[in-house]
Nucleic acid binder design. Structure first.
Length: 493
RNA sequence: CGGGAGGUAGUUCAGCCCGGUAGAAUACGUGGUUUGGGACCACGGGGUCGCAGGUUCGAAUCCUGUCCUCCCGACCA
């Protein structure tokens, strides 16, 4: 046997690590808290990125790029923002190394090369961007500014986990500037919807749209909206955020514009982001004990064709020819496909390998199949096998990919819906949390103190105040004080 | 940052207690037989034992320091 995967039941954390490592998405690196994203994982990210990028452009945004370094003084300008990130910033203090006079071949930081002002490696780019927007904006005619950036950011985390929390990660951050509050609020919600649509339609990941509580919101925001997803161990994971920043950054960086009435006003702002953390969500929402299961619409590879080789060279030639023809047909139909003729590994090895990597569809083609003019088609999500006529194969695969995408979403949504439990008394709250997990829909009196007390007692936090939820009078799960709406609690990543 | 585990071949690990020629499996290379769920035979290449000191005739093994990784916890808009 080759690579073994720890089962979810044995050790959920280890199962997750096994899927990421053995599924070929990423490796640990020599650098603390940082990972290497391998080609399989990076292609997955590229597919996610490309789709999001299309959606951003469809909604009127353009990409730009701002510096990796943020002068420390910029970060200080917005008070809440500064406090929120201070503890996890990497700081550049020098700009030169030199040979160590005391040790041959060693380098030391040149004490002569200290920076006048330290540079912070961006944990996010609001500061540097708003400093720039100040120069871009004079009149309402300069607005809105709808800019997105694809970048890496650094947050010096104490404890890291592959994709879920790494010191450096890849993301996109949208930063928009508007003339009116309403326009900025609308933008915030619009981008939340883009994330939700992307998660559900492309990642097959059902999400709850909601508003963060005061204590969970972004440092520097007026309101933080989020999409929350549920993992198979019953823990929640924030899959994207969209912030209404009010005029906080405009005031901090003195960004004003002249309105139509020739009056100076502060600009209204939003920011929104989604990161490689989404890959972690994908792994934990869909994977099984045999490996990754990737949704066809973003899978790095949709179909793999595996020959069952024959010692009869005539039969072997036929297999190769047929496989090449299938590759051609599928590619013409816009399906990504690979014919794995590598002779080092036998078919069984390849079956296991591509299952581990989560490739949605596998086609096995051998001499016996050719005699019957069929191929064995196996779908990764259910492992169901079918013999399909070679003449109908391309069409079948196209439909199958579509079906897998839908089935993955339905399965995840069924699980998610079964794990939203309405709870109205405290004992049951703790019991559900420990025994069943998932989201608990319960009343909350709206105070930070109660939220904190519940977190202290149970480790569960308010994941969000769901949007469009029905108004319903009730009593706070902990204090019994009146409440008008249920919120979602969960233990979270 | 606290607790635990660990660092020896590409990988997973044994060897360490009790110091004395660095091992296994797997992967890799060549040749052959194979190929419908992780094949087999033969031969072969591959390791400054995380790093730095110390003890010793001699250190993977004992001592000191240090770096790094994983797991649990604290922390984490």
């Amino acid at each position: 046997m080759g690579k073994e995967i720890t089962t979810r039941e044995q050790d959920y954390s280890q199962w997750y690590n096994d899927l990421v490592l053995k599924g070929g998405l990423a490796d640990y690196s020599a650098v603390r808290g940082c990972m290497v994203i391998k080609p399989h994982g990076y292609t997955l990210w590229e597919n996610m990125r490309d789709q999001l990028d299309r959606m951003f452009k469809e909604t009127g945004h353009q990409n730009a790029y701002f510096p990796l370094f943020v002068p420390k003084s910029f970060l200080e300008k917005e008070e809440g923002h500064a406090e929120g990130f201070a503890k996890e910033c990497a700081v550049v203090t020098h700009y030169r190394l030199k040979a160590d006079p005391a040790a041959n071949g060693k380098l030391i930081v040149d004490p002569e090369a200290k920076l006048e002002e330290e540079l912070i490696i961006r944990p996010t780019s609001e500061a540097i961007i708003w400093n720039t927007y100040k120069d871009w904006i004079q009149s309402y005619r300069d607005l809105p500014i709808l800019v997105n950036q694809w970048a890496n950011v650094v947050r010096w985390e104490m404890r890291t986990r592959l994709f879920l929390r790494t010191a450096e990660f890849l993301w996109q951050e949208g930063h928009t500037a508007h003339a009116t509050k309403q326009e900025a609020v609308d933008e915030t919600i619009k981008m939340l919807d883009v994330y939700a649509t992307f998660a559900e339609e492309y990642m097959a990941l059902p999400v709850v749209r909601g508003l963060k509580t005061e204590s969970e919101k972004f440092a520097g925001a007026e309101d933080t909206y989020c999409i929350e997803a549920l993992m198979q161990d019953g823990k929640a994971l924030q899959a994207g955020t969209s912030h209404f920043l009010g005029q906080n950054f405009a005031k901090a960086f003195d960004v004003k514009f002249l309105n139509k009435e020739n009056q100076l006003e502060y600009v209204w702002a939003t920011s929104w982001g989604a990161s490689t953390r989404l890959i972690g969500a994908l792994v934990m929402a869909h994977g099984d004990d045999d490996g990754l299961i990737l949704p066809p619409r973003i899978a790095p590879l949709q179909v793999v064709i595996i020959p069952i080789s024959s010692k009869d060279s005539v039969a072997q030639t036929k297999i190769n020819e047929k496989a090449q023809q299938l590759v051609k047909e599928l590619k013409a139909a816009n399906v990504s496909v690979k014919y794995d003729e590598n002779d080092n590994n036998r078919p069984g090895w390849k079956f296991a390998e591509y299952e581990m990597k989560g490739i949605p569809v596998r086609i096995a083609l051998g001499a016996r199949d050719l005699e019957k003019n069929v191929a064995e088609v196996v779908r990764r999500d259910t492992k169901e096998k079918q013999n399909i006529s070679l003449d109908a194969l391309t069409n079948h695969v196209i439909n199958l990919l579509d079906d897998i995408q839908k089935n993955m979403y339905t399965k995840a949504k069924t699980y998610r819906d079964e794990h939203i439990t309405k709870v109205d008394d405290w004992n049951k709250f703790e019991k559900i949390l420990d025994e069943k997990g998932g989201f608990i829909s319960a009343h909350w009196d709206g105070t930070r103190e109660t939220e904190e007390a519940i977190k202290e007692k149970t480790k569960a936090t308010i994941r969000c105040i769901p949007l469009n939820a029905e108004q319903e009078n009730g009593k706070c799960i902990l204090t019994g004080k009146p409440s008008k709406q249920r919120v979602l609690f969960a233990r979270a990543y």
